[in-house]
Design a protein around this nucleic acid. Structure first.
Lengths: 235, 235
DNA sequence: CGGATGGTTGATGCGTTTCAACAGAGGTGG
DNA sequence: CCACCTCTGTTGAAACGCATCAACCATCCG
């Protein structure tokens, strides 16, 4: 299902197809010139942004909401490779087809950039090129750390690591509240666990007074230090 | 342990510190200009090429042998993020410190490239730049597929996937022999399993007549199709 | 030949998954 | 506005897959 499908999908919920202009400038963002070539699109909760195998014409930036990048196995098992939050770029690759599926976690708006035009900007502007390479490194690094988590950490360690990852994004300190835009099933599929195991691990952390969860989409981290300890050697 | 240590390590086994000139030109390699700036180094089996946390001054290419990229957890658990075989580049990042450790799997020779000089070539030569970005994408893509394996595949599926990965590198067809330069423990740490589980999965595959192992460092794949089936839905 | 290293196989235990029941939040319609 | 329904999250009990522990085997090398 190439381009046509993607565009059809998008059209169904994408209302404001306009040049991206309203977004505030981000301090030292080498991608600033992309502002000129982006178009905005919106997706409803759980809607597909692109499917594995679709012709890859666009790269994206999250404006609001959250996106999950995932792969389905034929029998229904799912692995989420990454979550993207506002400000994150995704699908920056150069393959002719997407190798993963991207879906909106909640109602989400993104900016779409035609890859050809990104390519053009890269050739002209060293700043854009460097920013792209730098973001690629970060993605690679994130994926490699994710590998360690999936390969060698226990369930409790993975959940603690996940909370700390989010905390780092929020620059959260002890006592800070962090948002969990994704549901428990999404967390499970990111951590390579089942939803029940994620729940149990969270309950454990609650009983240890390390976190509290005012509601299912927020968490308060009371002892980041202790969470770190859990990640590095099971207690 | 910054530079000094790395160089000390290298000096212990690196004899031929010469400009890389003998290596045959690889057809359409955008990295050809790197030939001018590389120096050769050799490492004995299990020797460290660089440690996590070392100052990252060099990027590398494998000439002969194999390299594992891994991370140790404080309690001794180890995860291997990737293996690099002859022709592969590694440590192409731009962080000031390596975030993983690289070790020689067997006796190995590599070419070292000062990152500064790679950077210089990237700025001058679009071909080098594009090759670098392209290799980064491939690494990212490999890591993401690895994630699916660790997060959602069973032991048998992982081992079959691993064999197929190697087969793809060899462009192997049915009946072809593939090399396993790494030991069982390395395979286990790559797949997020124990050495015993890897052995058992291999034995299973042998009993199913899908593979034979003339010795521990080689395997013959008799039915690649069937191995694919195992990866995608447990039989 | 003898010890060391790496690999294989078997028996048991544990952590996670699976299956099942229930609880809470959110949305819809009477 | 409340009853009802659905969807998501939580908790418990049982089953299963992989890890652990242990013994044994093969190969290499002094």
């Amino acid at each position: 299902m190439p381009t046509a499908t993607v565009l059809a999908n998008r059209a169904s919920t994408a209302w404001a197809i306009n040049t991206e202009s309203h977004v505030q400038a981000e301090a030292t963002d080498g991608f600033a010139p992309l502002r000129q070539i982006g178009t905005v699109a919106s997706f409803a909760r759980n809607e597909t942004i692109f499917n594995e195998g679709d012709a890859a014409e666009f790269s994206y930036k999250v404006v609001t909401g959250a996106v999950r990048l995932c792969k389905m196995l034929p029998d229904g098992r799912r692995q989420i490779a990454n979550f993207f939050l506002p400000g994150d770029f995704f699908a920056l690759g150069e393959d002719s087809e997407y190798s993963f599926t991207a879906e909106a976690v909640g109602d989400t708006t993104v900016v779409c950039y035609a890859r050809k035009r990104i390519q053009g900007l890269c050739d002209e502007l060293p700043g854009v090129r460097k920013e792209l390479v730098s973001r690629l490194y970060r993605d690679l690094s994130a994926a490699q750390n994710h590998l360690v988590m999936l390969g060698r950490q226990t369930a409790k360690e993975r959940v603690a690591s996940f909370l700390l990852l989010l905390a780092k994004r929020h620059s959260a300190t002890d006592g800070a509240m962090i948002d969990l835009p994704m549901g428990r099933q999404d967390i499970a599929d990111y951590l390579g666990l089942t939803i029940e195991t994620v729940c149990r691990a969270l309950s454990d952390l609650k009983h240890c007074k390390l976190i509290t969860t005012p509601n299912t989409h927020q968490a308060v981290l009371h002892d980041i230090e202790a969470l770190h300890d859990i990640c590095e050697s099971e207690l």
